[in-house]
Design a protein around this nucleic acid. Structure first.
Lengths: 170, 170
DNA sequence: CTATGATTGTCACTATATATGACAATAACC
DNA sequence: GGTTATTGTCATATATAGTGACAATCATAG
């Protein structure tokens, strides 16, 4: 090996969009969980309330499909939120197997506060970037998400696509 | 409440940078894990090999510090890679408590293949975006990462900052 | 109307990952 | 020489996620 410069073969891991997205996404998710914790919620709870607020009375299965999670997982989420007095399981008007889920008054009070927490995070995240770049960034991210086949508003961290990527025993 | 338009209060969850980053970051991490799986590695293994390749002979503690993980976790990672014949625990030249970690020939052979897998993912991720926008995107992401206090090349998913965000029992 | 199969919500069980604390060996310090 | 800190290891708790089974109910076929 002659006079090679020795440090050429290292490709900048930190200069790749995929790595940066993974870094920032993980941090962003942690941060959101932390901001939600004082309200007694986890991100999945927030997502459920958001989805439900757009159309109350859905069954657990409907919600699970919309959020991309398994109905078995939905049971636990609904249990949590019911115990915290944020949603109610009522009788479904047409299907006696299913429950009709409804937000309580407490949820209608809490949800805006959670949204404000999200707003604060967004503000802090984008603090160092001017308006034009923010819009450009968000547009680019949306294009990436669309191109990657991600559904708007559906978080893959609560996935149930059967692939089970975290399984191989090394 | 009078004649309000009813659907104004829903802020577009899918239009927030923080949510998009979380979405794309999660997907990106899954995707990378999938691409690495055929090589018998997980992302943390890849990270370890990358860090070690820049300076062989490090102790486990040194590596753990560099990667931002706990030394107890490092034991398992090193076990995995040692069993797969990718690294060796040799005697540390100056500290008989510590091991000096070294890559094997197999690792020097495997690492470029793993890096190529990452390249392919990067290419696919950015497929729909032209050169100028790619550079702009990466620059913006780097600014966000820097502003968020993320160390270049250190993935927070393997964190050990003692905060333990996933603990509150709801 | 009844019989068969599909769907909904629930639960129990399993595996996996993650964190915590203890430990022996060794080093560093005074 | 004696005390304290560090390194690597292990055992254990804890949380999370995935799987399969189940009763109740619905839908459909005959």
């Amino acid at each position: 090996m002659g006079e090679i410069t020795q440090r050429a073969p290292i490709p900048p891991l930190a200069g790749r969009a995929s790595f940066l997205l993974s870094q920032l996404g993980t941090r962003s998710a942690q941060e959101f969980a932390n901001r939600l914790a004082p309200l007694g919620m986890r991100p999945s709870h927030f997502g459920l309330l958001m989805h439900l607020s757009q159309d109350e009375g859905q069954s657990q299965q409907q919600l699970a499909d919309a959020m991309g999670i398994h109905r078995n997982v939905m049971v636990g989420l609904v249990d949590d939120l019911e115990n915290r007095g944020l949603i109610e399981r009522r009788r479904h008007p047409t299907d006696r197997r299913a429950h009709a889920l409804h937000l309580t008054a407490a949820a209608h009070d809490l949800l805006p506060r959670a949204r404000r927490a999200a707003d604060e995070q967004e503000t802090q995240l984008l603090a160092g970037i001017d308006e034009a770049d923010r819009n450009h960034l968000i547009a680019l991210l949306q294009r990436l998400a669309d191109h990657a086949g991600l559904s708007p508003g559906v978080h893959p961290g609560l996935r149930d696509d059967g692939s089970s990527a975290a399984h191989r025993p090394c």
